[in-house]
Write a protein that binds this DNA or RNA. Structure first.
Lengths: 203, 203, 203, 203
DNA sequence: GATGAATGAGTTTTCATTCAT
DNA sequence: GATGAATGAAAACTCATTCAT
């Protein structure tokens, strides 16, 4: 049932956000008010459930990016995207936990990350062209920075829930350094945890 | 026996770096070429082993900071500290994983983090006074940024091992934005995972 | 499922009787023809399983006592209670092992022991009033003596399975010594393993 | 060294008395102020150490019995033996724990138990002949009763350390019931935990 | 003789996953 | 479709025992 799928996604999001991905399927089932077997009817494995949650979050971010691409003020749009993005991550630690792991083998998630980078690139390109941010920043950079800003503030969040704003500001100042030296190592397409060495690595 | 302790710390560092802290004690023992029981002879629990690894890394960073505090060029010293710091984290993902978790109850680790922030503050103060970086950056900011920069680059590291340099540069540009608006939410002393609300949170 | 619970209780009773409470949960699962996990589905911990077994035995004894309280012949009733009680213990050494241990922290078991003493007191009071036994014997004495008689005969049981009858007779003779000197140290309410010294101890 | 053997026996006695035979060899070594290896130099296995402790206790009881056999007053001697015996058990729960277990395969201990029964029989015979106790009580009965009395009082000992005296008195009253019916099932020689059925079992 | 580091089998317990109802 | 009982692999941790120093 569609209803149950929603219940499970909500419960799983909340549970993983609170306890990390070590949270048990039983706990999620319990919070959803369903039986364990039902979880597996909807998601064949824990990994698949995690992937679904990730997709949900990614789709939300993609939607935000696409909506903001319609805005007139490119700079404001990019800032709004990053603000909303970090805020979303702060509320859900699953994303960061999962993204660093070598086991991210779900192609749906990988595709969504690609689409998110593309959407972010659209936003970024406009700001870049307006000279609002430096010329060597890509959409992929922006996406990666979301997780980085969150991580920077993470240790403070228990006592200072808004600390992420500080590091977002600092990052934005970096992005606005239009007369700084060009940044090294432009990010290739985001092959998350792909098997290395498909293309050259620039030193 | 000292030898075995070293073997274990190395094996644990490598294993946690590769598999995260969910890696089993058995795997670590295996990689160290020792029996399971031997791990527990050296470290009474998994938490204690993790704390020992963290301490090792923290002590190394503290040492680096203290050594660099002797250097003449404050700006170069701070840059070197951050470069070395991120590089160290890249080689060991345990740090970031542990630092965000609500279970960090080892007082030795907490103390070491405090000392690291202090040492970083010494470095930072000099650069700040020389006007090399903006006036509202603290040592705690610098320490937090190390983990953030690492996290930003983490998804790329498999294919672009030096990607972190890009985000370090970007961050340094942000730190150098001396005429930017003051940053909000200055970090209080880093009470990692402390019970919240001992002091006011600035919005 | 109720079936499996019964199988487990039986298997556990038999296993503990044979090997003592050091017997492993694995062994019990094996004897019940079930998997290890199933034991823990029914009893969340080993202690809980032990408590369940104890309760089972205690409830049986309480039931016997209450049934016998209806009998006309108070002396015969008390004798029958003690005979049945010792016989039950002989078939299950768990009781004696557990009752002496400082880890008996299950309040359900403690309550049941209290109820057993009360039920035994009802039986005892009638025999006492009829002059069939000495006046200074309480229900608690009777309950304690069950375990004592069992222990006395225990070393013989392998070769002389009925040896306990001998010591039951001897004990009954002691109870019938109506003109003997009063016994010292009447047992207070049976606060098993309670923290000492809530009330005075008579020397 | 003889010294160390003594230290170990003392430490083991105290440790087992306090924690039961589940106490670890490491704990015993620690309390003796020695290293674990040294325990195994003196006692090839944990079972052997337990046997040594049992022997120590048994020898002490045998010694007491033999000394009391010299006394003029047979009744007082028997009473003194039982009092001392129960008192010794109260201070050392190892004895009771071990004696009920099917693993008592140490022939030294079995022999000592035989000798203890013999010594107790000497004491008992005199009291029996003087008519101080009933005619159908043997030395083996007396030995078995020591453990039984202790067990009876065991649950009370934490709050009423002298409760055993009550049940010793009660038992003595039983023993003095010279005009009671003869007891059934006279104990054969005490083949502790022997494989059953070497000789007939009387009903 | 004494030491204590190393071993590895064994214990309790958890949890993703399966499947009969 | 939903349930939750059963499964069994795997984890952290313990401890009797061995043996090089």
């Amino acid at each position: 049932m569609v209803r149950n799928r929603q219940l499970l996604l909500q419960a799983a999001t909340a549970t993983f956000a609170e306890l990390g991905t070590e949270a048990s399927m039983g706990e999620i089932a319990h919070r959803a008010g369903l039986a364990k077997g039902t979880v597996f009817r909807h998601f064949a494995s824990k990994d698949e459930l995690i992937a679904a949650i990730m997709l949900q979050m990614l789709d939300r971010l993609i939607g935000t990016a696409e909506r903001l691409a319609e805005e007139d003020d490119a700079t404001a749009a990019l800032t709004a995207f990053m603000t909303g993005g970090v805020e979303a991550l702060v509320a859900d630690r699953t994303f960061c936990e999962v993204i660093g792991q070598p086991s991210l083998e779900d192609s749906g998630v990988r595709d969504a990350i690609g689409r998110l980078c593309d959407a972010a690139e659209t936003l970024t390109a406009r700001a870049r062209e307006q000279g609002a941010i430096r010329g060597d920043i890509t959409g992929t950079d922006i996406v990666l920075l979301l997780a980085g800003i969150h991580q920077t503030a993470a240790p403070l969040l228990a006592t200072q829930p808004h600390a992420w704003r500080r590091y977002l500001e600092l990052t934005l100042d970096g992005l606005r350094s239009t007369d700084a030296r060009a940044l090294p190592h432009p990010p290739r397409h985001l092959h998350l945890n792909a098997h290395p060495a498909d293309d050259e690595l620039s030193l």
